[in-house]
């Protein structure tokens, strides 16, 4: 298993290099730069700005300088626990932001990533907590009103986009009843509406996948055997069927977790949550070259690691799969 993980991590290096290179050059060819504003700056000022950020250097030099700053130069993962400082932990320097002169991209990530992770973590719990029971219930009571109710709920969840559900929840529970704040991310109560909104869509998918996976398994011979041996229905479902039935859900969890973490932009905007997703999208509008690169690299690394984790979990859950 360690060999498998090691090899996959080695394979990730060229992938990351392609991502960094592509992002670096693509954003330079987009019209407009970090200092493009409707109110133009004078030529002297533009010159000084470009000199300060080394934008006057040849592009290849800017690229190689950046790559060097990016290269891990040490390995103290323990430092991460102290505040997600990638520079202290690995010597990875994402450089100062173009838009926010007094902050570095490392600082912005350290500040915003935990917020997105928290939002994503709770949302994932909502998704699993709602999706799994609904799916199991629907599968066990197949073709009864319970199944139809659960399945329609799931379908509705998939069909209602977050940018519709979010404002509706705000209207109902913040403006109308006043139970929650309409926006912000201050106390635990501010977690409720965003996490429900974001978790809802994934809960719906999980419910459908669980139902489908479970139904397939429930028709198999070994389930019949289990029943024939006199196992209770509860035992059949939870002990024998669920393990196989959840495989599709587990393969979905990898991309879903990545999606929840990187795709939280809409939720962060609706509820004004100071997370990394909002920084990411705004950085593209601001042409904040270093912040764009920093977030892209981080997201890419997260997706690679999550996919790897899913593969490992799948092998552990299904003995027919092997590490290869």
């Amino acid at each position: 298993m360690l060999r498998f993980i090691g090899r996959r991590l080695l394979e990730a290096i060229p992938v990351m290099l392609v991502i960094v290179t592509g992002t670096f050059f693509m954003q330079r060819f987009v019209p407009g730069g970090p200092f493009t504003a409707e109110k133009a700056v004078t030529p002297e000022v533009m010159h000084n700005l470009e000199a300060y950020y080394h934008l006057n250097d040849p592009l290849w030099k800017q690229y190689t300088d950046y790559l060097w700053d990016l290269c891990p130069k040490r390995f103290h993962p323990g430092e991460l626990a102290k505040g997600l400082d990638f520079k202290a932990a690995f010597g990875v320097d994402f450089r100062p932001s173009f838009k926010y002169p007094n902050r570095t991209v490392n600082e912005i990530i350290a500040d915003k990533l935990p917020v997105s992770l928290e939002l994503g973590g709770w949302s994932l719990l909502v998704a699993l907590g709602l999706g799994l029971p609904l799916g199991i219930l629907a599968a066990v009571r197949r073709n009864t009103w319970v199944d139809y109710l659960c399945s329609s709920l799931a379908m509705t969840g998939i069909c209602v986009p977050t940018f519709v559900l979010g404002p509706i929840l705000v209207l109902a529970f913040a403006i109308h009843t006043g139970w929650f704040n309409a926006s912000g991310w201050y106390g635990p109560i501010d977690r409720v509406l965003p996490c429900l909104t974001l978790g809802n869509v994934y809960a719906a998918y999980i419910a459908r996948l669980t139902r489908g996976g479970l139904l397939e398994v429930l028709n198999q011979d070994y389930i019949r055997t289990a029943r024939a041996k006199g196992a209770s229905e509860l035992r059949v479902v939870f002990r024998h069927a669920l393990r196989g039935g959840l495989l599709p859900v587990v393969s979905f969890l990898g991309p879903a977790t990545a999606g929840i973490l990187t795709g939280s932009f809409v939720i962060e905007t609706i509820f004004q949550i100071p997370g990394l997703g909002r920084e990411f999208v705004n950085s593209a509008f601001n042409r904040d070259y270093t912040l764009v690169l920093g977030t892209v690299i981080l997201y890419a690394a997260m997706i690679i690691i999550l996919n790897l984790a899913v593969d490992v979990v799948q092998v552990l859950m299904n003995p027919r799969h092997k590490f290869e």
Binding site: L84, L117, E118, G120, G121, Y186, G187, P188, I189
Partner: peptide
């Protein structure tokens, strides 16, 4: 483990007071 991970991640967030 997954649930714990999610909880651990959520622990990283800052707690402030509401406005």
């Amino acid at each position: 483990a997954l649930a714990l991970g999610a909880l651990a991640l959520s622990g990283c967030g800052r707690d402030g007071t509401s406005p």
